[in-house]
């Protein structure tokens, strides 16, 4: 018993945030847990009433789903809840060099709350930087689509270290078209190395629909903040966790039990182990 407690202090702790309509919480939590993290799936009510403290964790994961039904627009209501009621806590979390990942709906939330792309000019963040600078809107096809996409991996975020140059993850969304506020924001994102994933063809060439499944500007599928510690992406790495999740694994030789998305979760856990513990 005593041993277990001692080990706990050396164990990366992940909070997977959930609320009405969250639905990828279990598989996202599983991915972190598999690499040795202690994972709690926590309803936002528990953070709001201070039953649970964000500062007890090293990684905040906002998983996919349809929080509040995507009513008004995707991610908006949860984004406001976080920004208004937990804004200070999250800013401290980021400034403490902890990690945040938002997948699909979680990405929409981070973008609409202004945590992504965050401060485009320096690594410190405060409330003033929380204005929305990019958005994710309805796919050009105007419908929900579940399909696999090839992604060119860019930048040097802690999350994407060691990933292959081109990875293959599925998207499943209706509002994933990335649109920056203006050319200046887009330029900063590119210049700062904040673009983490771009849709591409199988061979890394410029994509056409459906390779770019939603019409995203500059084929952007995922971005980080300027430090690379806050990552948001529309595709689902947790759905390519095992080799057998690949859509045509039956045609491929098995070299590892893992799929190409697993590395992201492993990176997160390893960063905490080496840097924060």
């Amino acid at each position: 018993m005593f041993e277990a407690i001692v080990n706990m202090t050396k164990t990366p702790k992940v909070i997977v945030l959930r609320t009405a309509g969250t639905n990828c919480d279990e598989e996202t939590g599983f991915a972190f847990e598999h690499f040795g993290a202690k994972v709690d799936l926590v309803h936002i009510n528990k953070l709001l009433n201070r039953e649970v403290n964000l500062s007890d964790y090293h990684i905040l994961a906002i998983p996919g789903g349809f929080t509040y039904g995507d009513d008004i627009e995707s991610g908006r209501i949860l984004a406001n809840e976080l920004r208004i009621h937990l804004g200070e806590d999250i800013i401290k979390f980021i400034n403490d060099k902890k990690l945040i990942i938002g997948i699909c709906n979680g990405f929409q939330v981070l973008v609409k709350a202004g945590f992504l792309p965050g401060n485009l000019t320096g690594s410190k963040i405060s409330k003033t930087y929380l204005s929305q600078k990019v958005t994710l809107i309805s796919n050009d096809s105007s419908k929900f689509e579940d399909r696999w996409t090839y992604l060119e991996v860019r930048g040097d975020s802690v999350w994407t270290k060691g990933l292959k140059e081109i990875v293959y993850f599925p998207v499943a969304h209706a509002e994933g078209k990335f649109v920056p506020q203006d050319g200046a924001v887009l330029k900063s994102l590119t210049d700062n190395g904040q673009v983490a994933f771009r849709y591409c063809s199988q061979y890394g060439e410029a994509p056409v629909y459906p390779q770019n499944p939603n019409g995203s500007v500059d084929n952007i599928a995922g971005i980080t903040d300027i430090t690379g510690r806050v990552l948001g992406l529309m595709p689902h790495p947790e759905r390519h966790f095992l080799f057998e999740h690949h859509p045509f694994w039956t045609r491929k030789e098995k070299q590892s039990k893992y799929g190409e998305g697993s590395m992201i979760f492993k990176n997160g856990v390893n960063y905490v182990k080496t840097t924060l513990l």
Partner: peptide, 23 residues
């Protein structure tokens, strides 16, 4: 029809409704 349904949520999809070299 099939693409409009999320057939992979919950992270357990092994053989999908669409298969083959071009899915």
């Amino acid at each position: 029809v099939i693409r409009q349904y999320d057939h992979e949520v919950q992270g357990g999809s092994i053989i999908k409704p669409l298969v083959g070299v071009n899915c």
